[in-house]
Design a binder for these strands. Structure first.
Lengths: 147, 147
DNA sequence: TTATTTACTTATCAAATGATAAGTAATGGA
DNA sequence: TCCATTACTTATCATTTGATAAGTAAATAA
């Protein structure tokens, strides 16, 4: 296997993924929410509850800035901070009812666009796609491989 | 095929792709270059030459802001604008020698990390990965499907 | 107990990005 | 020819984001 060619293919592929997801999520947040704040909520949606340091690490943003954005999200009633009983310096962050609602609607609109994207894909291709997603998730984009 | 389940898988997958590419490209641009500027250069690297409007559309940024960033890149000698002979309102943008050099080095460093990521993946899995990338690129993340 | 480290907050400043108004020059259509 | 449209630029302002210093309180180690 030509690993260099594979890298080039990887680059083209990830660029396409970024482009498609960017298109799918365009103009989704109607409300007064900034891109970083949306990213945080999106992360919470799939990973909650998480600590503030985890959010900070995962998004490569400083703790002070993470803290600031979370405060804003809390003021908008989109998240909740629950202090850890075992270690009272820590906080667990999760979506509030409003936050869940908002992300649910956002994902619903994204899903609409996604279904539109694949509406004419034949059944056997869908199976192939599902398999391909499985493979890549397992072998390339898996959680443990983070640098 | 449960299309809703496929959507959930898609969401998880794209999140993982974003995470991995974000990790791979962390701290790559040493020089005085902003994230948006890097994105533009990255786009040029794979799509040049392109017009200013194409850059603007593709990155969902306004023409004035695109123009400003291109001006900065031009002042840093990383890109060149060539006016279209057929339509003199238009400009084709491409990387300068310096820009090519810089992106070449950036990609080389990213590739190093990528090769490290897949160094222990067995040969038969690499074939499977290559096939999976092909499938998804053809059937889901293809150019024509842009909204 | 005391010192150090960890988890987080508050505050502040600079830089990057986004939005918008107003302009130029070339093109294309009536 | 004249007018509308297109492609792009310049300028300006608001907002978002990033970086950093300094602080609090809890946990841990010596």
């Amino acid at each position: 296997m030509d690993k260099n060619a594979l890298f080039n293919q990887f680059v083209t592929f990830t660029a396409a993924v970024h482009q498609v997801t960017s298109d799918l999520t365009q103009n989704i947040n109607t409300d007064a929410i900034t891109p970083v704040q949306y990213k945080i909520l999106e992360y919470l949606k799939v990973s909650q509850p998480v600590t503030i340091t985890e959010i900070s690490d995962c998004h490569h943003m400083s703790l002070p800035n993470t803290s600031r954005e979370l405060k804003k999200l809390q003021e908008k009633n989109l998240i909740e901070k629950i202090s850890d009983i075992a270690d009272r310096r820590k906080f667990f962050v999760r979506l509030s009812a409003d936050g869940e609602q908002m992300m649910h609607e956002a994902f619903a609109r994204i899903e609409e666009r996604f279904q539109q994207l694949i509406q004419h894909v034949p059944e056997e291709d869908l199976e192939e796609i599902k398999h391909a997603l499985d493979i890549l998730q397992q072998k390339v984009f898996k959680q443990e491989d983070r640098l």
